[in-house]
Design a protein around this nucleic acid. Structure first.
Length: 883
RNA sequence: AGGCGGAUAGCUCAGCGGGAGAGCAUCGGCCUUACAAGCCGGGGGUCACGGGUUCAAAUCCCGUUCCGCCUACCA
């Protein structure tokens, strides 16, 4: 590797691609099927093949990568299992759109040709998101990349389907489902989005069969009255006493339908009379079942009225609504129309209004599966954090409904069920059959529906590891360590993986689930294309660099809080990246001429001992924060430590040795700043893989990637409490002088003379050993340290602990300024003392507060009182002096 | 409708029982040979409002207001 002085600022673009290729080429992301190391495994939430990297992906995968890189450096055999999801409806939509632009459609070219085209599309574009993840630095084991429709996963899907079918956990049944007339498929309840929609509530008169009166019902969907098979009222509703057994005439069709009683009806809403259309409304369907009503389907799969709609046949559902309203008006049956706001269901893919339709669909019986999945979390086998999501999970699991798994599209796993046309036998089989197993007929037809996309992703944690075969990977990595995902797919995906994993593997799919926040826009809105409020992560990476972007995401990823991304914040962290770059530049410049590493007879200065101690502490704290998924805290610790301790104090103090005449110290210091920098790089690497690798490789003696370096441990650094204490004093004194300089507006070019009145021998030794640091860091020319000196008249004074620093300002001191400054300080200290004293005078506090708190407060008052006394002395001395 | 979360410095947000914090912005002083994407210093907050628990509340509990999200079968 080239070891030259590096440029003044960090240029991410040139660097990122280079190192990613290097990592891949050297197989640093590869996991071992068998290994002595502790296994650590994350399965990626597979992005849709149609996907393009958005903020959600960026956050999700950054967090995963941080943990994976961290665990690798901690010595684990890490498998980050990547792959993509075939995303049935989404992908089919993309290809259909393409066909439409060519003036054709899927029906014209047929199922076989169409799926071929989708596969072609996938080959051509399916890698886009993968490359974007690489851009983000994701350290997935790409050799193991899987696709939910590849051969192995398809085999797993069939195995699961057939076994569930044989166990009676999959069935086909009549049900009212959410139908998207545009996508032409059933949608699960979860795939329906509810949005407040302005509509009208129509009051329609249903005459009694005897024509001696009427009932008025309120509805938002008058067109469905064609399929009405009853009108329901609440049995408790006094207005409708004695209606039991009566019949009414369906308006326009004059069909006789019964009035039924059902407690479901809300007496407060509308007129308290509810029309029942079992074939086109989920609630009506349920009521229809209890009252054994006919189900008359009047709207077809295209959203048009069918032959049962009589005169309205083949009209569009909305067109029909207008026509019916007109006819009702004419017949005098439309009583009134009120504007009405209600939540209408929309297809989550294409935003078409959902039509509840009666149809035959395949279902997974979810009850028992959910119970076990729920229990596993109650037993603590799988922990969900932040823990409030456990409640949400239980709520869902305990009220679960059967899962509609069939979709009427062509792209997906075709349901492995064959119908025999001769004996009407139904077979669910793993291998495509040639003849009917029962009667031997060759006239067998496969089910045309495909499975819900989530069916295959539910198997992801074990299907990707080789199931149903027994493999080393399953043996080593199942259950996986942690699943990291957004809460938006807690039900879609996490819950179902739990059910399937427990059922088929006999064990939970992951030990931890970490639910992170959603990235939102400035108003807290979910970013979405349709809203036009997306910030493109690729553009952000272009502008600020990937490391800055990743660090921003980590720093903002506080548990349980949404991330509202701002460019300013990213800019701030780009500065941080640059700061690291320049710290490295400084180290490299000092290493350049000659000796690089001194391993023996190292001379450790105070600042060396201090920074090494701090490194141990920070490394431990940061590691623990990552382990606990407190990414923002880990990032914050690193930021604070690297910038304000490593750069601002340590490197500045190291200059003394580095620029000094003492050859041995100089070389020793060179070695130590390199050691410290290397530890800092390792600490930061999980967050900022690129810049840390770039610098790492420029340092002497680093032929291997930083990826395989060991993450700093506390035990790597000796803990020197004395160094912490000494530095505290030194920093306090220096800060005191700087504060006076700042407040007095004394430019740094003006060197100061100071007199330090030190409390004890120990302090005086410490300061005397470090006079040079005081000179350089505080801009002091003359300094003397003594005990019990009196304050020179023309001086400004700072008090730290029990020490006083007098800055001599002969002829310079603006006494009024200094009085102001001291008064401010005195006031602050007095206020502090007062509030603490109040506590000490409170007998309840003294009785009930823990001893250590009381001791702390006492100690504080004592220290502050001494400080106050010294400040007052200083103040009195100049109190009456005029300029 | 129910559930969940939020309200802290001008802005974006940490902190969630014992000294009000960060980044950005702002003000003052500095081109001090790693970094002006920088260095040094300062100012700025009845921690939404009202109650309560506690020796002690930004932090826990109840209520109010305003915001956001999720779930839901009021046609």
């Amino acid at each position: 590797m080239e070891r030259t002085i590096i440029s003044k600022s960090y240029e991410p673009k040139q660097v990122e691609r280079k190192w990613y290729e290097y990592w891949e080429k050297n197989e640093l992301f590869c996991a071992k099927g068998r290994s002595d190391k502790d296994p650590f495994c994350i399965v990626i939430p597979p992005p849709n093949v149609t996907g393009s990297l958005h903020m959600g992906h960026a956050l999700n995968n950054t967090l995963q990568d941080i943990i994976c890189r961290f665990k690798r450096m901690k010595g684990c055999n890490v498998l980050w299992q990547p792959g993509t999801d075939h995303a049935g409806i989404a992908t089919q939509n993309v290809v259909e759109k393409d066909l439409a632009s060519k003036g054709t459609d899927r029906h014209a070219i047929g199922r076989e040709r169409f799926t071929e085209l989708v596969w072609d599309w996938r080959t051509k574009y399916g890698g886009v998101i993968i490359n974007q993840l690489k851009r983000l630095g994701c350290s997935c084991d790409w050799h193991r990349e899987r696709f939910t429709m590849d051969e192995g996963l398809s085999r797993a899907v069939r195995e699961v389907f057939v076994r569930l079918y044989e166990e009676g956990l999959i069935y086909k049944g009549d049900y009212i489902i959410n139908w998207c007339p545009r996508c032409h498929t059933a949608l699960a309840d979860l795939e329906v989005e509810h949005e407040e929609t302005e509509s009208y509530l129509y009051y329609i008169r249903y005459l009694f069969e005897s024509r001696d009166g009427h009932l008025t019902v309120a509805t938002t969907r008058p067109e469905t009255l064609l399929g009405d098979t009853a009108v329901a009222v609440n049995p408790e509703d006094k207005r409708y006493n004695g209606l039991s057994g009566k019949h009414v005439l369906l308006p326009l069709l004059d069909k006789v339908i019964p009035v039924i009683l059902d407690r479901y009806v809300d007496t407060q809403f509308g007129t308290g009379a509810l029309k029942i259309t079992p074939a086109h409304d989920p609630n009506d369907f349920a009521i229809g079942n209890t009252h054994k009503l006919d189900r008359i389907k009047v709207i077809d799969e295209n959203g048009r009225m069918n032959e049962l709609a009589g005169p309205y046949k083949s009209m569009d559902r909305f067109e029909c609504r207008e026509k019916i309203l007109g006819d009702l008006r004419q017949a005098g049956l439309l009583v009134k129309t009120e504007p009405y706001l209600h939540a209408a269901g929309y297809c989550y893919r294409c935003k078409t209004i959902i039509e509840p339709l009666l149809s035959k669909q395949w279902f997974v019986r979810a009850g028992q599966l959910a119970k076990e999945a729920s229990q596993a979390v109650r037993d603590g086998k799988t922990r969900i954090s932040p823990s409030n999501w456990e409640g949400v999970y239980f709520e869902w699991m305990d009220n679960i409904k059967d899962w509609c798994i069939s979709r009427q599209i062509w792209w997906g796993h075709r349901i492995p069920v064959w119908y025999c046309e001769e004996c009407e036998e139904v077979h669910a089989v793993k291998e495509d059959p040639v003849v009917c197993k029962s009667c031997g007929s060759t006239r067998i037809l496969q089910e045309t529906d495909v499975l819900d996309t989530w069916f295959s992703s539910a198997l992801w944690p074990f299907s990707t590891l080789g199931w149903p075969d027994s493999t080393d990977e399953l043996e080593t990595f199942y259950p996986t360590s942690v699943l990291i995902t957004g809460f938006d797919i807690l039900f879609f995906w996490v819950a179902r993986m739990m059910m399937m994993g427990i059922h088929f593997m006999g064990d939970i799919p992951f030990k931890d689930v970490y639910i992170h926040a959603l990235v939102r826009d400035a108003e807290g809105k979910k970013m979405s294309k349709s809203r036009g409020n997306v910030i493109d992560p690729l553009e952000v990476m272009d502008e600020f660099g990937t490391d800055a972007f990743r660090f921003t995401l980590a720093a903002l990823a506080a548990q349980g809080r949404d991330v509202k991304l701002s460019e300013e914040r990213i800019l701030g962290y780009r500065h941080f990246v640059n700061k690291i770059w320049n710290a490295a530049r400084f180290v490299l410049m000092n290493l350049e001429d000659g000796v690089n590493t001194v391993s023996e007879n190292r001379y450790y200065t105070l600042s060396d001992r201090w920074i090494l101690t701090r490194l141990g502490q920070v490394s431990m704290d940061a590691a623990q924060a990552i382990e606990d998924y407190r990414f923002n805290e880990a990032a914050g610790l690193c930021y604070q430590f690297v910038w304000h301790e490593f750069c601002d104090w340590y490197l500045e103090m190291a200059k003394h040795s580095l620029y000094g005449k003492d050859r041995a110290r100089k070389e020793s210091s060179r070695a130590t700043i390199q050691d410290v920098l290397m530890a800092v790089l390792k600490l930061l690497h999980p967050f900022m893989p690129f810049v840390t690798e770039e610098i790492w490789q420029k340092l002497p003696g680093t032929e291997d990637s930083i990826m395989i370096a060991a993450f700093p441990e506390r035990s790597d650094f000796s803990e020197d409490k004395g160094a912490l204490k000494e530095m505290e004093l030194l920093m306090g004194i220096i800060s005191g002088i700087r504060n006076i300089r700042g407040e007095m507006n004394i430019p740094p070019s003006k060197k100061l003379s100071i007199l330090i009145d030190v409390a004890d021998k120990e302090g005086s030794d410490i300061l005397n050993r470090n006079l040079q640091h005081i000179r350089v860091l505080a801009g002091v020319a003359e300094v003397s340290v003594a005990t019990g000196v009196s304050k020179p008249e023309a001086s400004a004074t700072a008090v730290f602990a029990q020490n006083q620093v007098h800055v001599l300002l002969k002829g310079l001191l603006d006494f009024e300024e200094e009085r102001k400054r001291l008064r401010k300080e005195i006031k602050k200290v007095e206020k502090d003392i007062e509030s603490s004293n109040k506590k000490l005078l409170n007998s309840d506090f003294m009785e009930k507060a823990p001893a250590e708190i009381i001791a702390k407060v006492k100690d504080k008052v004592e220290t502050l009182s001494l400080k106050l006394e010294k400040l007052n002395q200083s103040f009195r001395l100049i109190e009456t002096i005029d300029d």
